[in-house]
Nucleic acid binder design. Structure first.
Lengths: 153, 153
DNA sequence: GCCATTTAGTTGAACGCTCAACAAAACCGC
DNA sequence: GCGGTTTTGTTGAGCGTTCAACTAAATGGC
């Protein structure tokens, strides 16, 4: 049988609800800004960023999914949209006939270049401007710990 | 004209990406667990929680939207689903003829009672078990600061 | 070499969210 | 109390995500 539930004490409750509210509000704000100013959701922006940083601006679908924290299905649908927008195109993978490469087009790079300053400014305004340098450091350590914990088990 | 973009330095970049990855992974994990074990997304769980904590287990739609961090439209759609599941019902508001009250049904309360232990265990395992007490405290302060910053401006 | 297993990627349906438009009632100044 | 404004809540379309089912190609054992 399952062990007895380890309920949250009052401090944990407060922390969890605050974290939930903060991350939700931050993500929604940035997503809305990006949609308004650049016509793309944040998930698509991140796909373009990862492609722009890759050698020859191309990545295998699986690697892109991993890099952008996305499921394969999600990425497949997303790339279909990005392809329709002319920002990405697909290429056959030369070494694996199952594979597909997502390639950032010049138009996609231009869209990213246009979107980036506004988005970065949003991240700064809504996140970093609110926190002290010490808090930024704490947040990085906490986040790294959580990622390790979540992807390691 | 706009000011020059204040780009992120390397530490900020790392912090932002880690935070993004951590909160996304955490939310997706908890959402998936809740969907699998209780047949509801996390947003719906939170609506049921807020209702269960309200006097007489009922709230005005607006107040419920505010409490659960949801837009009115989103809440309206969500309550329609929850009503179809028999977990919530709507009542006319006696003091404002525009108003609607969302009321948690016995079935809804039972569904919440069934879902809570597993979900709380998930929050503990994926969040609190990974962090030191000091980090939990830091995370609460950071989150409170961000919420204030985001909703105050 | 052959068959079973694993991996890569896609597809379609169901679902939840966003946005803009809308209807109805309450509020407010006069 | 009348008329404009604000507030409350809903609606439908469009979009992005999830999940499960699927195809096709690579891999590994024998």
């Amino acid at each position: 049988m399952g062990a007895m539930t380890r309920w949250l004490d009052e401090d944990e409750q407060r922390t969890w609800r605050a974290f939930l509210a903060a991350s939700r509000a931050l993500m929604e704000t940035l997503d809305r800004e990006l949609q308004r100013d650049a016509g793309m959701p944040h998930a698509y922006y991140e796909i373009l960023v990862r492609l722009s940083e890759a050698p020859r601006r191309r990545l295998r679908m699986s690697d892109l999914a991993e890099a952008s924290g996305s499921s394969r299905s999600r990425l497949s649908h997303a790339v279909a949209r990005l392809e329709a927008a002319g920002w990405v195109r697909r290429e056959e993978c030369p070494t694996d006939r199952r594979g597909q490469l997502a390639v950032l087009t010049d138009g996609g790079f231009a869209a990213l270049t246009a979107a980036a300053p506004g988005h970065v400014e949003g991240v700064r305004r809504h996140l970093f401007d609110a926190l002290s340098p010490a808090q930024v450091d704490q947040l990085r350590r906490i986040s790294d710990t959580l990622v390790d914990h979540l992807t390691g088990s």
